[in-house]
């Protein structure tokens, strides 16, 4: 079974040289820590940065330079700054190659719910609806089951949707799965020490197991 950093580490292997990547808040943010040396990627922050760098050194933080999570950050060499309309322009026109975000539920047809729980205070969707509606390649980083022990990989999402037919791949503490065009979660890899049985039990939607499923290497 993977911890949060393990999920981030596995997702980092999906990041290829030359990609422009948008990382959501939570586990996706950790992915930046595991991008291998020699892989050149540019991180986009939807409040208006391409080429976002690490947190500033203590005492060097700048109130005018934050990321989409409102944290102080730095700029790397070759970075650029732009306004919010242009930022979503490059997302909508699919110049941003990969979006990695968290989810509360994913359906076997690729629908995603990650912004609202009825009866709880709604904070808003931020840029998530724009990102999932336009991104060509969306990877979801999440726990396989919720705190109540219920599967988050469903036939149909119960929670209000963020986007439809958009998720391509999911990495959880148990497995790597992709979503087939015709519907269904196809199991690609098991997390270290996790059995197929455990993954079956944790997946409520249609699970497709085709042949031998390898254990992932990190």
């Amino acid at each position: 079974m993977l911890d949060k950093n393990g999920i981030a580490k596995r997702i980092a292997r999906e990041v290829k040289d030359g990609m422009y990547v948008n990382l959501g808040i939570g586990i996706p943010t950790l992915v930046a820590n595991y991008i291998p040396d020699g892989i050149n990627v540019v991180l986009q922050s939807e409040n208006g940065i391409l080429g976002m760098g690490p947190f500033p050194w203590e005492g060097e933080e700048d109130a005018d330079l934050i990321n989409a999570g409102k944290q102080t950050v730095t700029l790397l060499k070759g970075s650029s700054i732009f306004d919010s309309a242009m930022s979503f322009g490059m997302i909508r026109s699919q110049k941003v190659n990969l979006t990695i975000l968290g989810a509360m539920e994913v359906s076997e047809t690729g629908d995603i719910a990650n912004w609202k729980i009825p009866g709880k205070m709604v904070k808003g969707m931020g840029g998530a609806m724009d990102l999932v509606a336009s991104a060509k390649n969306i990877i979801v980083a999440m726990q396989h089951v919720n705190k109540a022990g219920e599967s988050k990989l469903l036939t149909k999402c119960d929670l209000p949707l963020t986007g439809i037919r958009c998720v391509k791949k999911i990495v959880t503490e148990l497995a790597v799965l992709d979503i087939l065009k015709e519907g269904g979660f196809r199991l690609l890899e098991r997390a270290p020490g996790v059995s197929i049985e455990e993954i079956k039990n944790a997946t409520a939607g249609k699970l497709i197991i085709d042949g031998e499923i390898p254990e992932m290497t990190l």
Partner: peptide, 23 residues
């Protein structure tokens, strides 16, 4: 949605009354 919000502002400045978005 954030991109829709930004674009609805931008379009006011460009004199375009409405626009299509997948978001």
């Amino acid at each position: 949605p954030q991109g829709t919000l930004a674009t609805r502002c931008m379009m006011a400045g460009y004199g375009i009354p409405f626009f299509p978005t997948p978001a």
